[in-house]
Amino acid sequence: MPKLYNLHIIIAEDDLDDADIICESFNKNPDFVKVSLVPNGEELLNYLKDNSNETPDVILTDINMPILDGIEALNEILNNNDLKTIPCFVYSTSINPVYKEKCDLLGVKGYLIKPYSIEDFDKIPKSILSMI
Rank of each mutant, 00 (worst) to 15 (best):
I113S: 15
N80E: 04
N53I: 06
L112G: 12
E42S: 12
S127A: 13
P125I: 09
K126V: 15
E42K: 14
Y116C: 14
P97S: 13
A19F: 03
L106F: 06
P97R: 11
S52N: 14
S52R: 10
P125R: 04
I118Y: 07
E119K: 12
N80A: 05
G70Q: 02
N75A: 09
D31W: 02
I77G: 01
N29C: 09
L105I: 12
C88D: 00
V90M: 08
I21P: 11
N27M: 11
S52M: 08
D50C: 07
I21F: 07
P87M: 15
E76P: 05
N29G: 03
N29Y: 03
S92W: 04
N46G: 06
I77R: 00
A19W: 07
I124E: 05
I128Y: 04
N46R: 05
D82L: 03
K34R: 12
S36Q: 07
I124G: 08
N6E: 14
L83F: 01
I67A: 08
N79L: 04
L16M: 10
D31V: 08
L106Q: 01
L60N: 00
I86T: 00
G41M: 02
S127V: 07
A19R: 07
N40V: 08
K34V: 13
G107N: 06
N27P: 06
E72W: 03
K28W: 05
V90R: 06
I128T: 02
E43P: 07
L105K: 15
C103I: 01
S94T: 14
E43Q: 14
A73Q: 02
F121H: 11
T61C: 05
V58C: 01
E119R: 09
S52Y: 07
L45H: 06
K34H: 11
T85D: 02
I95W: 06
I11L: 01
L129W: 06
E76F: 08
I21G: 09
N46E: 13
L45M: 10
L7W: 03
L78Q: 04
Y99N: 15
D17K: 09
L74V: 01
N29E: 11
D120P: 10
L37T: 11
S94W: 14
N81G: 05
G110W: 04
I63N: 08
S94D: 13
N81W: 01
N6C: 10
Y5W: 08
K123R: 10
I71H: 06
P125M: 04
P66I: 02
L105D: 12
P56R: 00
K3R: 15
E101Q: 12
Y116M: 14
D18N: 13
Y5C: 06
E101K: 13
S52Q: 08
M1T: 13
Y99Q: 09
P39F: 03
K114D: 10
D82N: 05
N51L: 08
I71Y: 04
I77T: 02
F26I: 10
P30A: 13
N6R: 09
N40T: 03
I11D: 00
T55S: 03
I59E: 00
L48K: 00
S130W: 05
H8D: 06
D122H: 11
P56Q: 00
P2W: 12
A73V: 06
E54V: 02
A73N: 05
P30H: 09
F121G: 08
L129M: 08
I71V: 12
S130L: 11
N51S: 13
Y47A: 00
A12F: 00
I10L: 03
A73C: 07
N6M: 12
D17P: 02
K34P: 04
N53D: 06
E42N: 13
